[in-house]
Amino acid sequence: MEQQNVEKVYQALDQMAESLESHENIAYLDALGAAMEYIIDRETELTEKPIVKQQLDKHAAIFDKQGYKKEEVRKGIQLAILKGMKGATQQQHMLTPDTVAMLIGYLTNKLVGKNDNFRLFDPAVGTGNLLTAVLNQVEKDVQAYGSDVDPTLIQLAVMSANMQERQIEFFHQDSLRPFLLEPVDLVVSDLPVGYYPDDVQAAQYDLKAEEGHSYSHHLFIEQSLHYTKEGGYLLFVVPNFLFESDQARSLHAFLQQQAHIVGLLQFPDSMFKSESQAKSVLILQKKGTLTTAPKQALLVQLPSFKNPNAMSNVLKQINDWFDNELTGLKN
């Protein structure tokens, strides 16, 4: 039944976006943002054409008749966004896979422990898919924040959050510039990988390159630590080559000074088109006066998610590790 509802959400959004795309000659992702806005407010500035309004009203009506679960809405939106991103040439127009988002949500629950409330931040929020997937898995009182420089992506993130009835405060800005944000308990982010073009701003960072452009993924790690409380945790989706690049030595030295490396969980290579695209989850804890490094870091090579028995065994090992090594956030 849930999958049927996901399909219904997707089809309604897709039909609305296609109608706006074809009649108003705008990009599918922009049309999708406008379609979600129309579902929420029954208004759009993009069209005055009766035939388009008729289509929008017809498909928006399904959201009045049936209350969809937050995850059904998120997954339906995700399918529409994936359609819009097919063939997209911009590297940042990528979506965190659901299997990755589910693991981040699971680890979030482990790190949060018995805390009833906490503050959560994604500095590379994109369309909000990872952030809302995590929120939908955590039955807690969460103050959530997200930031992205891309106007199309942040618009989709805002509308997606509204459709899932999630309260999230968004920043539309370069996330490597200062924020008006108090430090948070937990950071989750699928880090943008590549070079940061603003050398003047990069010069403010310890992890700036000695020559040429700095790596944006390194700067995001430093920026995230800056906005994390002492003892807070950070969950990053990182490239497997993170500690093998030409600037890896300075990153390693910086992390040893600022954080405890809590764990590294490597996804199966079969999830990715090529070895160079393979990723892992890096778990850090920001050092504080009361923090200590785990006796043994959580190092895991994850099996294929299609192998439930192997996955079950690994999750048991992870659970045991958390029980023995980590007590979670202390508010």
Results as ranks from 00 to 15, higher is better:
residue 242 L to T: 00
residue 243 F to V: 06
residue 272 F to H: 03
residue 326 L to M: 13
residue 22 S to W: 10
residue 238 V to N: 03
residue 126 G to D: 02
residue 47 T to M: 10
residue 207 L to I: 05
residue 36 M to Q: 05
residue 218 H to L: 06
residue 32 L to T: 01
residue 135 L to Y: 00
residue 265 L to I: 09
residue 168 I to K: 03
residue 84 G to E: 03
residue 218 H to G: 01
residue 79 L to G: 02
residue 209 A to V: 09
residue 331 N to S: 15
residue 328 G to H: 02
residue 331 N to P: 14
residue 331 N to F: 14
residue 216 S to V: 03
residue 233 Y to W: 10
residue 95 L to W: 07
residue 69 K to W: 07
residue 247 Q to M: 10
residue 135 L to S: 00
residue 6 V to F: 05
residue 240 N to S: 06
residue 15 Q to C: 05
residue 312 S to M: 13
residue 262 V to Y: 01
residue 91 Q to N: 14
residue 230 E to M: 07
residue 163 M to F: 09
residue 72 E to T: 11
residue 227 Y to S: 02
residue 124 A to D: 01
residue 226 H to L: 06
residue 85 M to Y: 14
residue 292 T to V: 14
residue 10 Y to F: 13
residue 222 E to R: 07
residue 38 Y to K: 05
residue 12 A to V: 02
residue 154 I to F: 04
residue 56 L to P: 00
residue 118 F to K: 04
residue 298 L to M: 14
residue 281 V to H: 02
residue 71 E to D: 12
residue 252 H to Y: 04
residue 182 E to T: 15
residue 152 T to G: 07
residue 290 L to D: 13
residue 193 V to Y: 00
residue 127 T to C: 08
residue 254 F to I: 04
residue 331 N to R: 15
residue 285 Q to D: 03
residue 154 I to P: 00
residue 104 I to V: 15
residue 162 N to D: 14
residue 269 D to L: 13
residue 229 K to E: 02
residue 253 A to V: 11
residue 322 F to S: 04
residue 318 I to M: 11
residue 306 K to F: 10
residue 162 N to S: 14
residue 211 E to T: 14
residue 156 L to V: 09
residue 190 D to A: 01
residue 235 L to R: 01
residue 70 K to L: 09
residue 110 K to F: 14
residue 66 Q to Y: 13
residue 299 L to F: 10
residue 33 G to Q: 06
residue 109 N to E: 15
residue 48 E to I: 10
residue 310 A to K: 10
residue 55 Q to T: 15
residue 51 I to E: 12
residue 261 I to P: 01
residue 289 T to F: 12
residue 321 W to G: 00
residue 301 Q to R: 09
residue 270 S to Y: 07
residue 67 G to W: 08
residue 175 S to F: 03
residue 224 S to R: 03
residue 242 L to Y: 03
residue 113 G to V: 10
residue 224 S to C: 05
residue 316 K to S: 12
residue 88 A to S: 15
residue 117 N to Q: 15
residue 269 D to Q: 11
residue 265 L to C: 05
residue 30 D to M: 10
residue 100 V to D: 00
residue 284 L to D: 01
residue 86 K to F: 11
residue 240 N to G: 08
residue 99 T to Q: 10
residue 289 T to Q: 14
residue 318 I to G: 04
residue 148 D to N: 09
residue 247 Q to R: 11
residue 282 L to W: 01
